[in-house]
Amino acid sequence: MTARFIVTGTDTGVGKTVFAAGLAGLLDGFYWKPVQSGLQEETDSEVVARLCGLPAGRVLPEVYRLKMPLSPHRSAEIDGVALEAAALSFPVLATPLVIEGAGGLMVPLNRRTRFIDIFAQWQLPVILCARTTLGTINHTLLSIEALRARSIPLLGIAFIGEEMTDTQKTIAEMGKVRVLGRLPRLDPLTPQALAAAMRASFNAADFMEARA
Rank of each mutant, 00 (worst) to 15 (best):
E62W: 05
A149F: 04
F159A: 07
L23C: 08
L186P: 01
M174S: 12
P96W: 01
V63E: 00
R131S: 14
I171T: 09
V18F: 11
L70S: 09
L23A: 05
H139C: 10
A149P: 06
G25T: 02
T165V: 15
E77T: 07
I118Q: 12
M106N: 11
E46Q: 13
G135H: 13
A21N: 11
F159L: 14
W122H: 09
A85G: 15
G103Y: 06
M106V: 14
K33E: 09
G9L: 00
P184V: 00
P69L: 11
D28G: 14
L97S: 04
I6S: 10
D206C: 11
V14W: 03
R131K: 13
L155S: 12
G181L: 01
L134N: 14
F30D: 14
V7R: 04
A21Y: 02
T10L: 11
R211I: 12
L26E: 10
A82H: 01
P108R: 12
S89K: 03
Q121S: 11
V107F: 01
G103M: 06
Q168N: 10
M198I: 06
D28M: 08
Q40A: 15
L147T: 06
L109V: 02
L155A: 15
A120S: 11
L109K: 08
A130P: 05
Q123E: 13
R111A: 15
E145N: 08
F202M: 03
T165G: 14
I127T: 07
G38T: 08
A146P: 12
F115N: 06
A205T: 14
A196F: 07
A205Y: 00
E42P: 10
D44E: 13
V177N: 03
D11A: 07
L39A: 12
P69M: 00
G104A: 00
D11H: 04
G22V: 02
G161E: 08
G161Y: 04
K169W: 10
L66T: 09
D28K: 02
S45Y: 11
A86V: 11
Y31W: 06
A200N: 10
M106R: 10
R182D: 15
I116L: 04
S201P: 05
R185D: 10
L180G: 04
R50N: 13
T113C: 15
A130E: 03
Y31T: 07
R131D: 04
E42I: 12
L109W: 05
A200S: 07
E46A: 06
S143K: 03
A24Q: 08
S151H: 12
I152E: 11
M68C: 07
R148K: 15
R65H: 10
R211Q: 15
I171R: 07
D206Q: 05
V63W: 08
V63Q: 05
Y64L: 07
V177H: 02
R58W: 09
V179R: 01
M208I: 00
L54W: 03
T167Q: 06
T165P: 03
T132D: 01
A205S: 15
L23E: 09
A120G: 05
H73E: 12
E77M: 13
R114I: 01
L128F: 06
T190G: 11
F207H: 00
E145W: 06
L128C: 10
P191Y: 06
F90Q: 03
I144G: 06
E100P: 11
P96G: 07
E42Y: 01
P34N: 03
E163K: 02
Q40I: 03
T132N: 00
C52L: 00
I116E: 12
I160R: 02
L66P: 04
T12M: 00
Q40E: 14
G29E: 02
T43M: 07
